[in-house]
Design a protein around this nucleic acid. Structure first.
Lengths: 238, 238
DNA sequence: GATACCATTTTGGGATACCAGATCGGTATC
DNA sequence: GATACCGATCTGGTATCCCAAAATGGTATC
């Protein structure tokens, strides 16, 4: 199983014959989200072409897709891996709050909220022995799956896009076990509120969780900015 | 000046030399939004190629972009213009409410809200003699520009995407002068609330406006569904 | 040593050739 | 007349080639 951060946007279901384009797209996304290619790095179509053994046609298609995901950006005539942008992280938090709260309110109003239990089970699959990558993945998937329960494709897509763009930054965040546990508890509290149909409470808890998550993330990255720069990662200030 | 619905996603600023890809993308988008190509129609890369005098390379790039905008979709191996989907319109309204309300709350909390007056002037530029296309465009741009004032790129993009996907349906909606006037008045009322910094009132008015707009739109389209089908437009029921 | 200059290389944008699979017609068979 | 079959045609997917513009790097000049 793929435990890397890239699993947020997993490739098409296994067993399917992937086209070159899907191949390049998913592998390149994994490399970017997994920080194998650093934020701010230059990308050339020829390098990707030789790296993945595909011709430029699928490479260009993949680049266009990753551009709309915000993982890469045009740099004049060429391509650049999107830098870590602290100001952007703040804006994403505002956007997340809008769409995630709307989604959770919808879900709390559903008659059948049994989908919650699947998410609860997902949370419970993590314990002290679970590797850090898995914690990371579950933390992202929690929000995506919660949004999916709302049944609204647009809210889901919004949450998924936001989590994708947040993925690298969260990966860089230095989180101790206590912080992981706190987030885990907050996730469970949100689920509990949704389970009882208490939309207002769920919204409150989710808002606080997102704000807290943003604050911890920005603090961690700001403190570690020199270290990140030293690793060759472009970090844009807020 | 371009008064077509496609103006929602205008091409790069005039005077710039457009690449073939931008050329194909903007022209194809205009044809789709302007209903010159009907919802549900098949598209082949070869047809687009010959229609716009470009090779398949920029054509494919344009198709990939329009796919992420939701204006076209893959149909097995080929491409199809996205049908008008009534269920989707309801979901978009929910999404819109989430992001637009969030944006207007941010804007109402700003110190400098002078940008509002530019939008008010835009509304006031419409009168009884203004052609229907212009009313349509201003109606869409109102929401986009209002979101832009928030300064949040993600909320803006969400609103812009939603309005793009709503554009064709609104174009098909049969709106009498009274309905246009009502929407105009509601827009002004929202601006007035934002102007005084009354975020709660602005949010209330905006929510009601979006819900009312959705109801009128769905009613109109449902009533006219046979007519639309007769014109060869694929309309998916809610 | 700094700088202006020019040849070379590299880049993305575009056009085209080729392929495998799907589709569509027409025909032969029952 | 219905149906099974088969070849021509069309489709998107891919590889490759060409081009103009931009970046690069070395060199001559001051």
């Amino acid at each position: 199983m793929n435990l890397s951060p890239a699993a947020v946007n997993a490739a098409p279901e296994s067993g399917t014959t992937m086209s070159q384009m899907q191949n390049v797209e998913s592998q390149l996304r994994e490399m970017i989200l997994g920080l194998e290619i650093g934020p701010g790095e230059r990308l050339t179509e020829r390098w990707i072409e030789s790296r993945f053994g595909a011709s430029r046609t699928p490479v260009r298609a993949a680049l266009l897709r990753l551009e709309t995901e915000g993982l890469i950006a045009r740099d004049g005539r060429g391509w650049t891996v999107a830098p870590i942008n602290l100001a952007e992280l703040g804006q994403i938090a505002v956007y997340r709050e809008a769409v995630e709260v709307a989604a959770v309110r919808l879900t709390a109003a559903l008659e059948d909220r049994s989908g919650i239990e699947v998410i609860a089970a997902m949370l419970d699959s993590c314990d002290a022995d679970t590797p850090r990558e898995e914690w990371h993945r579950v933390g992202l998937d929690f929000h995506i799956e919660l949004a999916r329960l709302s049944g609204n494709e647009f809210l889901l897509r919004g949450v998924r896009d936001a989590m994708t763009r947040l993925s690298r930054a969260r990966w860089l965040e230095v989180r101790d076990q206590a912080a992981l546990g706190r987030a885990w508890a907050e996730h469970h509290a949100i689920l509990a509120a949704v389970r009882t149909g208490d939309a207002a409470q769920a919204a409150r808890l989710l808002s606080a969780h997102i704000a807290g998550s943003r604050d911890r993330l920005l603090t961690s990255l700001r403190d570690d900015r020199r270290g990140l720069r030293a690793r060759g990662f472009a970090v844009v200030a807020a």
